[in-house]
Design a protein around this nucleic acid. Structure first.
Lengths: 335, 335
DNA sequence: ACCCCTTATGAAATCGTTGTCATGGCGGTC
DNA sequence: GACCGCCATGACAACGATTTCATAAGGGGT
């Protein structure tokens, strides 16, 4: 591998000068700079990122920790974040938690030795901060920027970029109530997902605003992921029990698809007999038939906020600890 | 950061011995090992991965280069591959190409200086190997394992793990023809995607096997991604033209969803008036209504093959340059 | 009892870069 | 004309691990 000393000797300067030319923060005589640049060009030199990371104590990679990348919303987020980071010269390393939260701890412990620049926490798991805070603080102390994405951890001192789950769910629920598609049910992960919990909270608030109580029979707490099959199963069971309801707000688009399928399987017309609204705003949900009404999250805006965060850290600017990205109800046919 | 020398002095040995204990390939006296292990434990030492990478000349990260992670199949692949790599102590860094192939070249050029262990090429772009081969060989020479996933590059000397696109598409097409759902159309990226091209090839072969010609009017070459909207648009236009056909094989599940939507929008009954088969086998496609018939790719098997590859490299074993993973037509309602 | 070989360990070099410190040269000021 | 200071550059140490080479201790064979 062609190194800085090769360039240096070729340009008849010292390695230090080559480094200075590359860094650009220290003045270098124009003529010297030109010589160095030419040598770099001729030898096809590329600075070794690993060596630089070791020397300066931190690298140029940011980890994205997701609950389940297979869920469309995380994939979309990953895509946008990767693009945003790339523009800042940062790489994205992916860490998919799956169902097991304990893996988060392992990852956090490993993080400092990886030379990560930052960690984007985008797992919906409700975290045991009692246990996690020490490890997170250790990582932070070692210079890693920890940023919570999609879950509010600002009360623990970690900057957070969150989408308005409460507001989005409330809007969706209110929409259904105004249209008299009541009672409205809720399906999502509540016990095990901080995000699902927030969405449930929005649902609850909207009911309350209309002077209605939450009917526990109409709240289905999923335990195994946000997948379509879970939605299908929950809805099928509810229908089999003869529960009376006219609408469902689902905590993900995939769940909503499962609900729509279950309703259709029982012969319900959507939205007249049963209205369904999803959550996420994935690219394909406009093409289900009937087309899915959903609370769209703006992954691009989230990613930009992430980019802003790192830019601010670069320039030393101070940003709000908590930034919330609005969620918009997009009306289509299913509700 | 607690380093190997801290551990060494705490255990009253030299750094070299600590390293030996960790590596485990050189015998260390049981008593010394115990002392070192205790010191590691007490100090909470973690080997610095960056330093190790620099020293040994390569790191423990593998890059996954995708065309568009937002397409479900890549996200699924990323998930499985990440899990598989993690079991081998490797990290996954994600590089999403988007539409621009030139970014692949940039990435490849940058790769050696990142200390990557390997690169998983999973972009469907048809590659200009004339241009790319030199950069790829340079990367390979610097010790990076380059593995093509989902596109056959074995004729250029790069080991490839591919799914049976030709066979899968042929099976799907044949299925439709046997059921007399003819003529059958094809939608996908053909000019710009090696994978789409392979699927088209399968379609063509199946037609030929039934003594039929490809009707150019029934082959829709998408240029902007594999998304649902593209499928919807292509199908809508074909229908508007009054083209006569009774089935479509789509080169992705998302495209197929768009096609189903377009057919439904024109009042066609699926599958009786119009049959549709997708490609990918995403988790949610069983929950469209009608449920989508699709050619399922086994992302788990692909990921395992990737794992096998790295395991083999570790142990020096020799593997076939080309491994093909079967694709299975899963029959549901749409065809 | 001597020598040789094996085994465990330590010292030191090395990977490629950056940053600190020192130095040489040059221009300006009194 | 002497001195001060600044600017550009070079020499060198350091980041934290691995690995080669050397060496000390111990054991067995003749």
């Amino acid at each position: 591998m062609v190194s800085v000393v090769a360039v240096a000797s070729h340009a008849k300067v010292s390695p230090a000068t080559v480094s200075r030319v590359l860094a650009g923060r220290v003045p270098v005589a124009a003529e010297t700079r030109a010589r160095v640049l030419k040598a770099i060009e001729q030898l096809g030199y590329r600075p070794n990122e690993v060596a630089r990371s070791l020397r300066v104590g931190r690298g140029r990679s940011v980890a994205l920790v997701t609950g389940d990348i297979e869920q469309g919303i995380y994939a979309t987020l990953a895509k946008h974040v990767q693009g945003e980071l790339e523009a800042l010269g940062l790489d994205l390393v992916l860490f998919n938690l799956g169902h097991r939260q304990d893996r988060l701890r392992h990852f956090l412990e490993r993080a400092p030795s990886l030379g990560l620049r930052g960690i984007l926490l985008s797992s919906p798991h409700v975290m045991d901060m009692e246990e996690l805070a020490p490890v997170m603080n250790a990582a932070a102390k070692s210079g890693i920027e920890i940023l919570s994405v999609s879950q509010d951890l600002s009360r623990y001192g970690f900057p957070s970029i969150i989408h308005d789950d409460v507001g989005g769910a409330a809007t969706a629920t209110a929409h259904l109530m105004v249209r008299r598609r009541t009672p409205v049910a809720f399906v999502g992960r509540i016990a095990t997902s901080a995000i699902g919990r927030a969405r449930f909270e929005g649902y609850r608030k909207a009911l309350k605003a209309h002077d209605q109580e939450v009917d526990p029979a109409l709240v289905w707490d999923i335990s195994h992921g946000y997948r379509a099959d879970a939605g299908h199963q929950a809805m099928t069971e509810a229908l089999a029990k003869g529960l009376r309801f006219r609408a469902v707000v689902a905590a993900s688009d995939e769940l909503a698809l499962g609900c729509m399928a279950a309703a259709a399987d029982r012969g319900f017309a959507i939205p007249d007999d049963m209205a369904v609204v999803g959550f996420g705003g994935l690219a394909w949900v406009g093409f289900t038939r009937p087309a899915m009404t959903t609370v769209a999250l703006d992954a691009g805006a989230i990613a930009r906020a992430v980019g802003d965060f790192f830019k601010a850290r670069e320039s030393g600017a101070r940003l709000a600890k908590r930034r919330v990205i609005p969620a918009n109800l997009v009306l289509r046919q299913s509700a």
